[in-house]
Structure formats: structure tokens, C-alpha cells
Amino acid sequence: MIPKGFITALRLLTIIPVIGKEAEKRYCAIPYFLIVGLIISIIHFLGAEILYHYLPGLTVFAGLLLTIINYTASGALHLDGLADTADAFSTVQTREKTLFILKDPHLGTFGAGAMFIVILWRIITYQQLFEQRMMLWVVFALMFSRIMQGLFLLLIPYARGKEGKAFGFKGPFAFTAILIMQSVLLFAAGWLIFDYRIVLSVVIGIASILPICLVYHKRIGGITGDGIGAATEVFEIVFLTVVVAFV
């Protein structure tokens, strides 16, 4: 029997179809975010292996194809959050106007520009990792980013009250403790495989999303699903860029 929390996490973070009822308390899905990140990263890894061994003629397009896999599997959820964040915070607005822009389905100039830059950035980064046979780093990037999502939902005030997809994820401290334990275990695994380099990538990745947290807190008094999506995109891209540049 599939745990209800896992069903909720899978439906929230991917387009992968799954049969079953969701968790009555949404925060019960948070411990399963890590597993969802693992599933998406395994899809990446298998895609890279297929290109290596069975479609060598397409390896020149590996970065593009793997980027398509990433956004298809996740439903481009985080990319949409990044675009909405860029549109909402590109100019000085009131709290109410900022929340309205975040909810507006229309794509603005700043949002389109942010999407273009990040997609291109991811393509280039994936291509470099693919050529150096370093796609295992993507597994860790996506798993760490899903733990980060859970911590955002549990620890940062939600700006929309009872509205929005990210409502209902505030849970007992035990769930925060679970995510901390997951982080420690993932760090330990990363240290065994990559040594100190995993620390460098994670620390710089976290530093890169602090401005997003600060601007959300200052402008609207908390985080939204779009903010978590934007932070996810930035963290993953910066994490993997550090790998390409310094590792």
C-alpha cells in the first residue's frame, strides 16, 4: 500500500500519475519530498545513461534533452514560480499588488527573461556535467532542494493565509527533525562520494537563495509557493554551477 503522504508529495511536485488517496494532513507529505527528488533525479540519470550507451549521436543535445526531462517530470512548477517571482518583485509594489502579480497567470517581461536565463543556464550546466560523466551530482542537487522545500514550508510564515497550494504544511517539530536527519544522512553520503566538495556546493547554493527569502519576508511578510519554486530553481542551478566551476 502506497503511503498517503507519498501520494500527496508525488502529485504536488511531479506530473507522475499515482492512484490512491492523499494525506488528510498535508504536512505528512513533507518527509517524502526527498524521495520525490530521488525519483526525478533517477529519471535524469537514466536519461543520461540512455544517451551515453544507446543514442550517442544525440549527446551533443544532452543538455537540452535532460533539461526537457527535468521540466517535464516536475511540470515546470518551480520554473513558473521563478517567473512569477521575477514579475512580482521586479518593481516596488504594495503587499497586495505583489500578491496579485504572483497569482496572475500572465507572463511578464521580467518573468520571461528570468525563465530564458535559467533554462539556458541549466542546459549549459547539464551539458557540462554530462560530458564529464558527473550526472550523479544532479541526484544530490535535486534531493537537497526537496529537503529545502520542506524546511521552507515548515519554518517560514506563509504569506497567503489559508489561500494557495502551499497552505496546510505547517506541522509539528518532529517533521522538521526528520528533514534535519535526512539532510545529515544526505551530507554523509555526499561526503563519502565527493568529500568536502559537497559542502562547498550546498553552502554556496543556500547562500544564493537567502536574498529570495529576505525580499519575500520584507515585501509580503512570508513565503509563497512561487517563492519556494524560485528558490528551488536558483539553488539547483547555483549548486550545479559550483560543481562545474570548482569541482
Rank of each mutant, 00 (worst) to 15 (best):
L151Q: 14
K162C: 04
I123N: 04
I156K: 10
R146P: 02
L107A: 12
K165T: 11
G164I: 05
G111L: 08
Q93S: 14
Q127K: 09
I30W: 09
F140Q: 07
G168V: 06
Q132I: 03
Y71C: 01
L107N: 09
H44R: 00
T72P: 00
Q149V: 13
G81I: 09
G150A: 05
E131H: 12
I117Q: 01
Y52H: 15
L55E: 05
L99W: 08
V36F: 10
Y158L: 05
I30L: 15
G57Y: 08
G108F: 09
I50R: 05
I117D: 01
G81T: 01
L129C: 08
A88C: 10
Q128V: 14
V60G: 12
A112W: 04
Y71K: 00
L136D: 14
Q149P: 00
A166E: 08
Q93C: 11
L58R: 03
A166R: 09
M148N: 11
F110H: 15
S145W: 06
I39Y: 06
F144D: 05
L77K: 09
I40E: 11
L51N: 06
A76T: 02
I42Q: 03
G108L: 10
I35Q: 06
M134H: 12
A112D: 00
V138F: 13
G164R: 05
T67I: 07
D80S: 09
R160E: 11
F45A: 06
F33Q: 10
R160N: 01
D104P: 02
G47A: 11
N70K: 07
L46K: 02
L77S: 09
I156L: 14
P157K: 06
Q149F: 12
K97V: 12
F116H: 01
G161W: 01
L58S: 05
I124P: 01
G113D: 08
R122L: 12
L77Y: 14
A88I: 09
A83L: 10
E49M: 10
M148G: 02
F110T: 13
F33R: 11
A83H: 04
L129D: 09
E163P: 00
I30V: 15
E96V: 13
R122E: 09
I40T: 14
G111P: 01
E131M: 13
M115E: 00
L79V: 08
L58M: 14
N70E: 13
D80A: 11
L55T: 03
Y126I: 01
V36K: 07
L51Q: 07
Y32D: 05
L154T: 06
I117S: 09
H78E: 05
I50Y: 12
G57S: 13
A62G: 11
T72K: 02
I43C: 10
I69T: 13
Q93D: 13
T85P: 03
H106Q: 13
L77D: 03
H78Q: 08
V36C: 10
R146V: 09
M135S: 07
K162S: 15
T59D: 00
I119C: 06
A83R: 02
L55C: 08
I124F: 11
G47F: 12
G150S: 07
F116R: 01
M115D: 00
